[in-house]
């Protein structure tokens, strides 16, 4: 079953068009990278998939259901682009931040039980951050904070995970280990990953499919095109998806 099906999606901010007739699908277990230059609408596409924006036309189906009727949002995890900034000054420990996402399992007006504390610990172990459980999030490095945000999503056992440039502001070594971790999660648990990234070079080893968004149009790149794209990106880091422009 396709977890995401997007058909003829068009979106504009006022009179400024951003996406035209975008079509793609994501199957269970896919690890998909969404690339494109700045301002091409990658984050907008994610916001449409999270129903934060309404398309001008076209349809989005999540888990086989029209997005307007879709209610099972806890199946979807989201690691934001601005995550680092939002948590940096927040006075909370790592375990408090991870446990927050167990809401759907704990329920309204209820308090966490032993099993929820155990799940938090497990999620932190999955990302190798269990020893930092009692530390304040603001005292961690950027890479560690991003792992915590990943654990916050994983604690809820999502089937589909969106990541919006998860490695922005993270050093090179940490970026590689984060992508490796995502690759392992994808292989071991069958977690479907859709990731917006500017860093295809480091992510390419883990990613199964690469979609490129340029001038409002979405195209899937094959292996040879990805290699070409990486060579081009190396020479012109500010431009992506050269193949599409040609």
């Amino acid at each position: 079953m396709n977890l995401i099906e997007v058909n003829d999606l068009t979106f504009s901010y006022g009179s400024e068009p951003v996406l035209y007739n975008v079509n793609f699908s994501v199957a269970k277990g896919d690890f998909l990278a969404l690339i494109g230059s700045n301002g091409t609408g990658k984050s907008t596409l994610l916001r449409l998939l999270l129903r934060e924006l309404t398309p001008a036309s076209g349809t989005i189906r999540l888990f086989g259901e029209d997005i307007h009727h879709f209610k099972d949002w806890p199946k979807i995890g989201y690691v934001p682009q601005v995550g680092l900034r939002s948590v940096n000054d927040f006075p909370a420990t790592v375990e408090e931040i991870v446990r927050a996402n167990l809401f759907s399992q704990i329920g309204l007006f209820r308090f966490p039980q032993k099993e929820h504390f155990a799940k938090t610990q497990q999620a932190l172990e999955m990302v190798g951050m269990e020893q930092y459980a009692k530390r304040m999030i603001g005292n961690l490095s950027g890479g560690q904070q991003q792992r915590v945000l990943l654990a916050r999503v994983l604690v809820n056992d999502p089937e589909l995970m969106f990541l919006d440039e998860p490695t922005s502001g993270v050093d090179a070594n940490t970026v590689t280990s984060l992508y490796t971790l995502l690759g392992e999660l994808n292989k071991k648990t069958g977690l479907t990953v859709v990731m917006v990234t500017h860093d295809l070079g480091r992510a390419a080893r883990q990613v199964h499919r690469t979609l490129c968004l340029e001038e409002g149009t979405l195209v899937e790149l094959d292996k040879a095109q990805v290699d070409e794209e990486l060579r081009h990106k190396h020479k012109h880091p500010d431009r992506q998806c050269r193949l599409m422009a040609e």
């Binding site: 999270l50 934060e52 949002w73 806890p74 979807i76 995890g77 989201y78 934001p80 995550g83 939002s86 948590v87 927040f90 909370a92 408090e96 931040i97 446990r99 927050a100 996402n101 167990l102 809401f103 759907s104 704990i106 309204l108 007006f109 308090f111 966490p112 916050r152 809820n156």
Partner: peptide
Amino acid sequence: ILLYKELFFISLDERAARLAGIP
């Protein structure tokens, strides 16, 4: 007290809180 964890999550990350099913 009753909305302790919900208010915490909303003030931390409103978008993630909505995705987690918090009203």
